[in-house]
Design a binder for these strands. Structure first.
Lengths: 242, 242
DNA sequence: ATCCAGTTCTGAACCAAGTTCAGATAGCAA
DNA sequence: TTGCTATCTGAACTTGGTTCAGAACTGGAT
């Protein structure tokens, strides 16, 4: 009885197809102008078929965000597996997050929108669940690095749980991306490179918690060197050193 | 010719009235269910009149966000004027930000939504400008405290501009609020009090940049004491120590 | 007091786009 | 071939944001 399975596979493929088309439409005309009928049309399906996959437009947007999270997690996974000190890997998480957001500017906008209360609630419960499912590893991997740091003796949490520590890093990254993407907010303070800045702040935070070895946050050369090393050793194929 | 001015005042008052009604409707039924016609109806005006004030629904939402920012800035202003060391004031910014978000849970949701690319662009240019106008002081005040720290000799920026330093703090705060408000994301790591955690991370970051005097991030008693002191000396009337 | 020109208000009508669902079609087993 | 089911279709429906032609009001001039 392979018929049913083929069918399932076809349906799954079609879902990818819809999502891909939505992505293209968003790139071409912006998230603001995304229309369900256009997505269906571009895939040469009727809107009704589209609605068999996504219960609403918001549901589709959240599905896009989830796809992005999968990619995001995949990049974090490289960092996690990287053979380097816990502190360097923690730093690499920041680099990775910047890299990902920069290479995928739409993803940030999409997930920022999708995670707004309004949109989140308008998506289906199962879609929300699926989103959390694929997003959990992102936090978990960072927490894993924190735990490695503790195990190595490079970091003393002093009452903080690994998860709580993670939240600090995560907030710093997410907040930076948010500020960068909010048109106008940062314009008055002219930042040459917000992601470089994020790297510095991460070092600041890690230093503040005495994660060994200490790094001089003002040592631009060292920062660049580590950045380049990460690009080379972890993200070589992405040619990220632009 | 006072007629024209009275009229202007009346129009401005009506705008407040509309915004107030929108706020109530959002509290009652959520941002998701906000309807322009309901706002007009509740104010006993025709929808057309409502549209004389706001070019679109998104425009109204951004106006709400701007109102919130004014309040936010007013709280920051207290911190700025507080007679205390630069480091304590910097810390108080974090407390203030948490306090504000906690006292005003809708504001965060509203501005998170309003600042999404989709909504931001759907608002009128003048509204966007007005939003930035009232939001600028928020960053500027924090930057002012950073500059005070440098002036006092408590902080060496070592190549960072005051604005760049500010962005770190800001990102940490904004990111934390974001994580806290994103349902489900933080559930797996059980945080008892995310805002207390934010305070700790701020201390971590300030320590990391050697902002004097050094604070032991694990000293819960000291953290509580400072928190209480800030509530008492800066936000006494808000009865924030709940 | 009456009239007039300009301004503001009104809400029914308009319209776009998300969503639905009754019927058409295709796939499969008997 | 026939019937049964699952799936697809897209015109019709629905909702709610937006508009705009006409009503109502305002304040000053006659």
């Amino acid at each position: 009885m392979g018929t049913r399975e083929r069918r399932q596979r076809e349906v799954a493929e079609r879902e990818q197809f819809f999502l891909q088309a939505a992505r293209v439409l968003i790139r071409e005309e912006g998230l603001l102008n995304l229309q369900m009928s256009r997505v269906a049309e571009r895939c040469e399906y009727a809107v009704g078929t589209l609605y068999q996959h996504f219960t609403s437009k918001e549901d589709l947007v959240l599905a896009l965000a989830a796809e992005g999270s999968v990619e995001h997690a995949a990049l974090f996974d490289r960092v996690q597996r990287w053979q380097a000190s816990s502190r360097d890997r923690m730093f690499a998480i920041g680099v990775c997050s910047s890299l990902f957001v920069r290479r995928n500017p739409d993803h940030f906008r999409i997930s920022q929108y999708a995670l707004c209360d309004v949109v989140w609630r308008a998506a289906s419960a199962s879609r929300r669940e699926a989103f959390l499912e694929v997003s959990n590893p992102i936090g978990a991997m960072v927490t894993g690095i924190v735990e490695d740091g503790v195990r190595e003796g490079a970091l003393a949490l002093r009452g903080l749980s690994p998860g709580e520590f993670t939240v600090g890093l995560w907030a710093l990254c997410m907040g930076t991306h948010n500020l960068v993407h909010t048109e106008g907010i940062l314009d008055q303070m002219r930042l040459n490179d917000p992601y470089r800045l994020l790297c510095r702040h991460i070092n600041g935070l890690l230093n503040g918690y005495s994660w060994k070895p200490w790094v001089d946050p003002a040592d631009d050369a060292a920062l660049d060197a580590l950045f380049d090393r990460i690009c080379h050793e972890v993200f070589d194929d992405l040619r990220c050193a632009d």
